[in-house]
Amino acid sequence: MSEEDDRAEILALIHANRIGIWTKNYELWSSCFVHAPYITRWGYNVQGGPFVRRSWDELARRAVSVFAGGGEMPYDANFAHNTTVENLTLRIYGDMAWAAFDQQYPQSGHPGFRGSGLTHELRVFERHEGRWKIAVLGHMGNDGFHDGAAILELDAEGTIHWASAEALRRLEDDDDLVIRNGRLRVRDAACQRRLTAALAWAANVDSGYNSGRGSLPIVQGAGEGLPTRVWWVQVEGGVIYFLMDGQGLTEARLDVAAAIYGLSAGQRRLAGLVADGQSLPDAAREMGISANTAKTHLQRIYDKTGVHTQPALVRVLLSVGMPL
Rank of each mutant, 00 (worst) to 15 (best):
L254W: 07
A283C: 08
A150V: 00
T40G: 01
L226M: 09
D57L: 08
I240Q: 09
V66S: 00
E157N: 02
D173A: 14
E172I: 11
Y261A: 10
R194P: 01
M1Y: 01
P111M: 06
E153I: 00
V230Q: 07
V307A: 09
V235P: 04
D206G: 09
A265Y: 03
R127H: 07
L118I: 14
Q192E: 15
I240M: 11
V314S: 08
I160M: 03
L249H: 15
K133H: 10
A284W: 11
Y26A: 10
L324I: 10
W29S: 07
T196S: 13
G109Y: 02
D5P: 00
P227T: 09
L171C: 06
L90I: 09
R253E: 01
R170Y: 09
V320F: 04
Q247G: 14
N82M: 02
I260W: 03
F113H: 10
S116L: 04
R91Q: 12
A100M: 11
P50A: 14
A12W: 03
I218S: 02
R53C: 03
L270G: 03
R18G: 10
R169Q: 13
E236V: 07
E58L: 11
Y302D: 06
R185P: 03
R193I: 00
L254V: 09
E172T: 10
W162K: 05
G43F: 10
A68F: 04
L280E: 01
A150R: 11
D155W: 10
E58C: 04
